[in-house]
Amino acid sequence: MKYAVFLGCTIPSRQINYEQSSRAVAKSLGIELVDVGFGCCGFPIEPIDQVKAISMAAMNLKKGEEARLDVVALCPACGEMLMKAADILGKDETTVKNVNNLLSKHVGSEYRGENPRVIHFARMLYEDFGTDKIKNLVKHPLTGLKIATHPGCHYVRPSSLNEGFDDPEFPHSLDELVEATGAESVDYINKNYCCGGSILAVREGVAKAMARKKLEVLTEVGVDALVLICPFCGIMYDRYQKLMNTELERKFNIPILYYPQLLGIALGIDPEELGFDVNSISVSGLLEKVGV
């Protein structure tokens, strides 16, 4: 199995624990991830200028197609932006015209319907690799761990871009991936709610309160970790958990793991290779609990 890996802006600079663990897991599973020179997906500036955002996505789609590989995105917002751009460019001639005006004038290129398959890393593990195969490769079952999953917004929604994959209201693929490691995936209220990350730059207070709500619920439920698959969710629940601990009376202590970090432990990968030093909330208790 071989894919063009789409890292986006946030992961290779701010959340390299996600990248490091994803590469380590892919290597261990025999999945080749190729870097083909992608750039920003466009998502961050879509609110300001959608034509520019779609132009960026279009150039990335071209690179994926030129490499003749399926594109695997670590960031669900990047993945969604690429899928959405391909969808809009396939339907809306005005946008194609606007995008191609911009691209021919400023980049010397043109979008010609390039439309490689784009999927999220977790979906790739779930659909292309398969949970049964993962189960067979687990060397260190995480039996006894109580895990909450946070699927986030762009992994399964909008369903119009993810036809036939999972459920927009009650997503379960990430839970199955967690259970493939031997851990238990526990249910909790408003699991499919947003972390608030995308409004951090608009109203920090609201964004933090959104993240805090989930941390409060999970503290009630009592979990060993929250497992997620999006760098913005990671920043909100991990970094901001630590920050909120310095601001609030109530202290949270919920380790936040990227799914590949959890899977990596189960596959017997050296924790040094899984980037735990970057995590803001210490995972040492969890590692002790599973005996690594």
């Binding site: 609110p47 917004c153 762009h154 929604r157 909008p158 369903s159 927009p168 209201e169 499919n192 709610y193 947003c194 608030g196 990350g197 995308s198 409004i199 608009v202 109203r203 609201v206 959104m210």
Partner: peptide, 15 residues
């Protein structure tokens, strides 16, 4: 006001 900027693009309502 800043309300149009407060939507987090979570797509819950869209679904």
């Amino acid at each position: 006001n800043d309300f149009i900027w407060l939507c987090s693009m979570c797509f819950m309502c869209q679904e």
